[in-house]
Design a protein around this nucleic acid. Structure first.
Length: 556
RNA sequence: GCCCCAGUAGCUCAGGUGGAUAGAGCAACUGCCUUCUAAGCAGUCGGUCCCGGGUUCGAAUCCUGGCUGGGGUACCA
């Protein structure tokens, strides 16, 4: 399905060219992009272009005069009923009612594929998100990451990309060793051994619980091993346990991964050696202060970065370079999107210098940075969890407010905006909650369709749909592809949440104005037409809910 | 100090890359259920778009200087 605004852009461009050729407009350089927008007020039509306002200076003519000239030279537009010129110089386009009605059947025919646009042309894109250190349960910060990342993945799929979802498991660094060490200590303590958690270890209560759990499940057999081996064995079990927990938590909010990529494989499979060779050959490495440095400043970076620490171990940035080499060169992704919390934004510049050092186009990498979430309850900030004595976990919040509410609220805010997530608002005020508002529209539709089963038959004539509320609903439904495009281009899923509410609102207004199933046999034809409209609306609502990873309940 | 994000209605936030009259939800107030789901609908109230200056036909949007909040600025990740 072609996007109407894109078609209008082309038509206006043609009209400009024609008008100039015929002398209706003076010669001037035509703009590369013609702005086409959705006007605010219905009387202004379905689409509008302010392009003539911009051209006023170039053409040295009054904007309205330019608009009249353009309007006079527009090609025949199959689905446009009227083109009008409105002061101070807008071109307003109103869609033909019969064409709008036809779209009801087009949407039903498109089904699940309605709302998809071909922006990506099948390009391979990877969305890597969450990737929290596997040292404990996922907390609320990761929840925003998960919801954002998964929504991006869904949107990009709808926008024609071949998407892969990936979780990067940091199982190689010093943090992992601290985790292994701590877990072994807690395990040994469960048997009364005199061990103490290292200074840089994990002191939270969840480690105690995990140590005890491992002790229960596996007995004391690891205590007989040499300590190094025991730490390794217990640590591995703990890592698996944490990853299983993360997988479960993420699935609870509808997030599934295609790949769990372990950092350690970069060192096992020679990727790290390969990038070191490339960097050395490129002359990007230098040695001083006992460490090996990446000279990022030479590529415009803000500061140099340590690659190999003075103790001989590779730093986190070394892994990052090898990891992205693997993504682009080994696995061949055309484009990679990493979703990071604002607490990592300081590392953005070095990622681009890294791309250059590897000889890769930096434009292929996008870092989506989201601002941190503060959790509130009744206006009061909550920091600590009662259960873990630590950060509030993702699991706790899902259990309290539900997966749909969590996904909706976290999707509904722009990633740039530091947001408050109020638990009481998400849960207790469920009656007046936008989450249910949208889902309720879907349930209402299902209810109508159930009720109308007796007079089903797909011989409804959509051209009987002429009521303003019917056409307003169709207009809203037709916006979905544009919204998907906007969200995909801007990597901004929050547009979906706003659109979903507007679509639901248009449906509820239709429901108020137009009785679908009538008891009067004389209305049968209209009823059948409206049933088609309702069925089409269901398709669109279902799609937008799905893009947000939310369920579309049939009964509420 | 320097870098990134934000500041829009009482609250939470939208305002695709400068355009028409500033938007939604919640909160407050008025009405509407004997017919398909009232978790709904219609309406009212509510604005110094943080504050200066600049750019131009035109600024919530762009530039600049401040102020406020958040996050960075490690041989942690």
């Amino acid at each position: 399905m072609t996007l109407i605004d894109q078609t209008l852009q082309q038509y206006i461009a043609v009209a400009l060219e024609r008008a100039q050729r015929k002398g209706a407009l003076p010669a001037f350089e035509r703009p590369e992009v013609i702005p086409v927008e959705r006007p605010k007020y219905p009387e202004q039509g379905d689409y509008a272009s302010p392009v003539c306002l911009q051209l006023a200076r170039l053409a040295r003519m009054a904007p309205t005069k330019i608009a009249e000239a353009v309007a006079a030279h527009l090609p025949e537009l199959p689905y446009v009923e009227a083109v009008t010129v409105a002061p101070p110089g807008y071109l307003n386009f109103r869609l033909r009612k019969a064409w709008l009605a036809d779209q009801v059947e087009a949407i039903i025919a498109a089904g699940e594929s309605f709302g998809t646009v071909d922006l990506g042309h099948g390009q391979k894109v990877q969305v890597e998100f969450v990737s929290a250190n596997p040292t404990g349960p996922l907390h609320m910060g990761s929840a925003r990451n998960a919801v954002l990342g998964d929504a991006l993945a869904r949107i990009l799929e709808a926008a024609g990309y071949a998407v892969q979802r990936e979780y990067y498991v940091n199982d190689a660094g010093s943090r992992m060793r601290a985790f292994y060490e701590t877990l072994y200590v807690r395990y040994a303590q469960a048997f009364g051994r005199d061990e103490s958690v290292p200074e840089d270890g994990y002191h939270g209560p969840h480690m105690v619980a995990m140590g005890e759990a491992l002790a229960r499940e596996h007995g004391d057999r690891f205590l007989a091993l040499p300590r190094d081996e025991a730490v390794e064995a217990v640590g591995r079990l703990g890592l698996q346990r944490v990853l299983d927990g993360a997988r479960d938590d993420l699935e609870a909010i509808g997030v599934r991964y295609d790949c769990w990529f372990h950092e350690s494989t970069l060192y096992r499979e020679g990727t790290f050696d390969r990038i070191m060779q490339i960097l050395r050959e490129g002359g990007y490495l230098s040695e001083h202060d006992g460490a090996v440095w990446f000279d990022a400043t030479r590529l415009g970076g803000d500061k140099d970065e340590v690659i190999i620490r003075s103790d001989g171990s590779p730093g986190y940035f070394a892994s990052d370079i090898a990891y992205h080499y693997d993504k682009f060169v080994v696995r061949g992704f055309d484009r990679v999107i990493d979703v990071w919390g604002a607490d990592h934004q300081g590392h953005v510049p070095r990622m681009f210098t890294m791309m250059e050092a590897l000889g890769l186009d930096p434009k292929r990498l996008t870092l989506v940075i989201y601002q941190l979430v503060t959790l509130k309850r009744g206006g009061e900030e909550v920091r600590l969890s009662k259960r873990t004595g630590d950060m509030i976990t993702l699991r706790e919040v899902v259990e309290e407010v539900g997966a749909d509410a969590m996904r909706f609220f976290l999707t509904a805010r722009s990633a740039d905006s530091q947001m408050d997530f109020d638990l009481d608002l998400a849960k207790e005020q469920s009656d007046e909650n936008p989450v249910y508002y949208v889902q309720y529209a879907h349930a209402r539709i299902c209810s109508i369709l159930r009720y109308a089963e007796t007079l089903e038959g797909d011989d409804g004539d959509v051209h009987l749909l002429t009521h303003p509320s019917e056409l307003a609903l169709v207009r809203q439904m037709l916006r979905l592809p544009e919204v998907v495009r906007t969200a995909a281009e801007g990597l901004a899923p929050h547009h979906l949440a706003y659109y979903a509410q507007e679509l639901a609102s248009a449906f509820h207004a239709f429901y108020r104005d137009c009785r679908v199933v009538s008891s009067d046999p004389a209305d049968l034809a209209v009823s059948k037409a409206r049933l088609k409209l309702v069925a089409a609306c269901r398709v669109v609502l279902h799609k937008v809910l799905d893009l947000m990873g939310m369920s579309a309940p049939e009964v509420m």
